[in-house]
Write a protein that binds this DNA or RNA. Structure first.
Lengths: 226, 226
DNA sequence: ACAGTATTCCATAGTCATATGGATTACGAG
DNA sequence: CTCGTAATCCATATGACTATGGAATACTGT
């Protein structure tokens, strides 16, 4: 049946991927990197980690080759090694959602009440007619790194002050990092409270990209940096 | 940006799946369960684990809901919770193969020289014509749990004594548990050394099933149990 | 009810993972 | 060349994971 030590060595290699995804903080980092490259301090802040812990987690991900690095000036920018990694993260996240009963209460506790959804397919069907305004509520840097073509960029933090930029009659579809990101949830609730017709795209930018749909980069349609 | 504790709790849930796949032995168990249900002692023997360690690993997998149990008599049979789990394992394994340079040498060390391949597509194209004999070289229990319709069952351990059962002129396609299983490799090498034309199906039973292709169960075409 | 077997539970020892603070390295600006 | 900043390296304390042997539990067959 073959050399047991060689077999163990092979599964040992496979497990490097599993080990890299065995920490909640590392999964959070992978999720963030799915939006585009980021440098260490930024990731540490966003994932609520100490700088050294964050760096250590990034080393683990790098050792498992899930991320690549690029040096620019004094900063080190990390990105996902490939779309396979984004798919892998999505697989783990969705498997958890299907298999673990505790995910649903945790999701509700974090995201709050459900808001009305629209699927990617429906959005694509109705997008051409001009009756829908697509709104990207992520930070501008993530919008710049890749967004749905034609989407407006208003980060959630600025949305309340910039409601006037939205066409009052159109139906608004807000999207963000994904189904487990608060931004679009909060945005839809804010918009509806202000009389808009608004729904949330069922998933976020990474899924859009993985579905092979076109994306646009750079030059925000709107102004930036609050 | 939402409650950090709630966010941590959510990613904590996701990481339960990652933690379950963070051990080489547990991945080996998942791979085995992809062939069909198995009881604890059998798994312990096949994965070269002590009984209690194996049971403990199975508890971890069960706690992450990757496996389900069925009691029959004094035995507990474990199976994968769903095809999603088989897909998830395949994703981790294939990600490792793509991302980690150390996988290829480990594969060669375990499986030996490469043997000639045939893809699922080519097999399907040429299967109807009768020029190909499909040979399942896994243990009979795994054949019984699900095999390619029309495949002959000759477990690798019996192949040398039962060469006469194979049509001498036909081209033989051997398959087993998957691309990282020794059985089909050894079978093809044995067949070629005995003058047969033989190739290995590029992947195994789980991939066949996940591709939505038909499977047959029970009643081996050939006799059994050496 | 009793003996036998499969599995799980429990306690333990050794190893590995995580977070953190201080020192070190690498780079760019002046 | 020197200073300031970003990131990594190093040492350490704490907590988690793994394998294993012995005890306890659950079920079958007689």
């Amino acid at each position: 049946m073959g050399d047991p030590r060689a077999k163990a060595a092979l599964y040992e290699q496979f497990s490097r991927i599993g080990k890299a995804m065995a920490s909640p903080k590392r999964l959070e980092i992978l999720d963030l990197l799915g939006q585009g490259e980021r440098y260490v301090e930024d990731l540490a802040h966003e994932a609520q980690l100490g700088l050294t812990s964050c760096s250590a987690h990034l080393q683990v991900l790098h050792h498992a080759r899930l991320v690549t690095t690029r040096k620019h000036g004094t900063r080190v920018y990390y990105s996902l090694a490939s779309d396979d990694v984004a798919r892998l993260f999505a697989g783990v996240r969705d498997a958890a959602a299907h298999l673990l009963a505790d995910v649903e209460p945790a999701r509700r506790a974090y995201l709050g009440e459900d808001v009305e959804l629209i699927s990617r397919d429906e959005l694509l069907r109705r997008a051409g007619s001009g009756e829908i305004t697509v709104l990207d509520v992520r930070p501008t840097a993530e919008y710049a790194a890749g967004h749905i073509p034609g989407a407006l960029s208003i980060p959630l933090a600025q949305l309340r002050q910039r409601l006037a930029e939205l066409p009052p009659e159109a139906e608004i579809v807000a999207y963000c990092r994904g189904a487990y990101c608060v931004f679009a949830h909060d945005a839809v609730r804010l918009l509806r409270a202000n009389g808009y017709t608004a729904r949330r795209l069922a998933d976020g930018m990474p899924e859009w990209r993985l579905a092979g749909l076109p994306t646009a980069t750079a030059e925000p349609v709107s102004l930036q940096r609050a």
